[in-house]
Design a protein around this nucleic acid. Structure first.
Length: 556
DNA sequence: AAGAGACTCAACCGCTGATTC
DNA sequence: AGAATCAGCGGTTGAGTCTCT
């Protein structure tokens, strides 16, 4: 845009640059050739296009020699790649593209070129500009950079990693990165917490639990952005003494699939709580630390003393910022229940993801427990008979083995799946038509999703995005929604339609309150397809749900 | 209407890895 | 093996445009 001024003065391309031009500061180069800088003119474009048409791409330094174009090879390549090459898609990103970019960024970080490779017609520069703009915008708005669902996914991966034996190589890398990045992260995380202290009764008081890698990264190199976008308003200055622990993923996910939130029965809620900044209040013990990185010096030994690392490190990897996302909702939640009870809840129930094959009996009493157990039982029997729908989001690792497409992508994933990326290449093929056709911007939709329970599902990242496959790419994963036991999944279980659904909804309302029920109701209003999957509408919602369930469990 | 600030985007810069000599 | 060159990537800059007050 802009820079039209050059258009006039350069209408004639100076293959025979005058001496006057040599002194022009817009020209630079060696003693022999003075290369022009600044905006390209249409004439230059024509020359370049003509050259590329004749000689093909590459050998950019030869352009100047052969055409007299006073541009360096770099500039030519850039011009061609970003503006002149055919099939470039100009114009604003569509909502679908925006979502896809978010997903890609979540997985890749600031790998613009890679991202561009998945968006035909889009350039890395374009994507980069878009993303940076988005970051700024969301930062100003105090919004998270990523949809909360992504955070959950990362958390789930982390859960699996922990259950699989602690830190693996990827996690180790995580730690390294984390330590390097702890400063920026600290600020970021803390910002989000303090900002919500007023409304978040269980705002984390733990300190020094630095967010791990993927959550922290991805924002940008200069750490000017944080995983949780703090409102730009000065009045929102925040403390710097605490952080919200978060989880990090690993590439294990791409092997294990998804939905592990409840898969590991070991203190799942503890870990969730950790992720939401609750854990430390209750359990400062080492369990927390399995997945948490500490920014303070190990020699310090004082977990309450945050010692940000000031080493300047470029953060590239994705940053998942969920804690802040819906703190408003958190704020509306009752004070946290006894987390132990939540642990009990999870421990007493077969992980949702394994309902199909494992119907444990409730170990806890309580209405919801009973309901959940009943649902599980029915689900198990039903699923065994129905041979799992093709788009089941609860594919097990074994299922994945049957998915050749998945395997293909999985292989390619290895190339760039960052071990510290928040998301592995989890691939659950579920469509969520709810978002399709929406013309809302991604930001808007993400906000919406927060309350509708739609979880943007990370698909095979290594496929090229097209409108045709977008519905697959943007599948949604709802694997960890205890609240949906009352709704969508009951549909799936044969409970949810008509009267039964009304009953469960009413029950939810009664037991969990209008707010929760409204959420639940909203979420269940989706299509049957979307109701086949489980998920958190938002981390906060999930937390609320768990709190509610915990309450119920205790009440029961 | 005007000014300020935000936004957008093209282009440049520096760095890195691959390739060639 | 090491230097030179090339291609590409990601970060940054800056000017035009837009929006808000």
């Amino acid at each position: 845009m802009g820079r039209v001024s050059n258009e006039i003065e350069d209408e004639v391309l100076p293959s025979d640059t005058s001496a006057a031009q040599l002194n022009d500061e817009s020209y630079e180069g060696s003693t022999s050739v003075v290369l022009k800088k600044g905006p390209w003119t249409s004439t230059e474009d024509d020359i370049l296009v003509d050259y590329v048409n004749k000689h093909g791409e590459g050998n950019w330094n030869a352009v100047q020699k052969h055409t007299g174009l006073l541009r360096c090879g770099k500039s030519c390549r850039l011009r061609w790649a970003n503006h002149l090459r055919p099939n470039l898609k100009k114009g604003a990103f569509t909502a679908e593209e925006e979502r896809f970019i978010a997903e890609l960024h979540a997985k890749m970080g600031n790998k613009w070129a890679r991202m561009a490779a998945h968006l035909p017609g889009r350039t890395d520069n374009e994507i980069k500009n878009y993303w940076n703009t988005r970051i700024k915008r969301r930062q100003r708005a105090g919004l998270p950079l990523y949809p909360p669902e992504m955070c959950l996914q990362d958390f789930q991966e982390n859960q699996r990693n922990q259950s699989n034996g602690g830190l693996n190589g990827g996690n180790k890398m995580h730690l390294d990165l984390l330590q390097k990045n702890s400063y920026g992260i600290h600020g970021a995380i803390f910002d989000s917490t303090k900002d919500n202290q007023g409304i978040l009764p269980y705002a984390p008081k733990f300190s020094d639990v630095s967010v791990c890698g993927n959550m922290l990264k991805g924002l940008d190199s200069s750490s000017q952005y944080c995983s949780v976008m703090p409102p730009a308003s000065p009045k929102n200055k925040r403390l710097r003494e605490s952080t919200i622990p978060t989880f990090h993923g690993s590439n294990d996910t791409k092997k294990n699939g998804l939905y592990p939130l409840c898969k590991n029965r070991d203190n799942n809620y503890d870990k969730i709580s950790q992720s939401f900044g609750m854990q430390a209040l209750l359990d400062p013990g080492p369990s927390l630390h399995n997945s948490m990185c500490y920014s303070h010096s190990p020699s310090n030994g004082n977990p309450s003393t945050s010692k940000p690392t000031f080493e300047a490190v470029k953060l590239e990897l994705p940053s998942l910022q969920y804690p802040e996302l819906h703190l408003g909702r958190w704020g509306t939640s009752p004070p946290p229940p006894l987390l132990e009870s939540v642990d009990d809840f999870f421990q007493s129930h077969t992980p949702i993801s394994t309902l199909e094959s494992d119907c444990s009996s409730p170990q806890n009493s309580g209405l919801l427990d009973a309901l959940l157990y009943q649902a599980k039982t029915l689900s198990s029997s039903r699923n065994h008979c129905s041979d799992k729908s093709s788009n089941s989001s609860t594919a097990t690792p074994g299922d994945r083995g049957d998915n050749s497409a998945l395997n293909v992508y999985e292989t390619e994933w290895e190339d760039y799946a960052d071990p510290v990326s928040p998301f592995g290449a989890t691939s659950i093929l579920n469509e969520c038509p709810d978002l399709r056709g929406s013309e809302n911007s991604l930001d808007e939709q993400l906000s919406l999703q927060t309350f509708t329970g739609n979880i943007p599902k990370l698909e095979f990242v290594d496929k090229v995005w097209t409108p045709d496959n977008e519905n697959q790419t943007l599948s949604f994963l709802n694997i960890n929604r205890p609240d949906l036991l009352f709704a969508s999944d009951w549909n799936d279980l044969g409970f949810g339609h008509g009267k039964n659904q009304a009953i469960t909804t009413d029950t939810t309302t009664t037991l969990l309150g209008e707010d929760f029920a409204a959420d639940h109701k909203h979420m269940t209003s989706g299509t049957s397809q979307s109701s086949q999957v489980w998920g958190f509408g938002s981390c906060a919602t999930a937390a609320n749900n768990m709190h509610a369930l915990c309450h119920l469990s205790d009440l029961g």
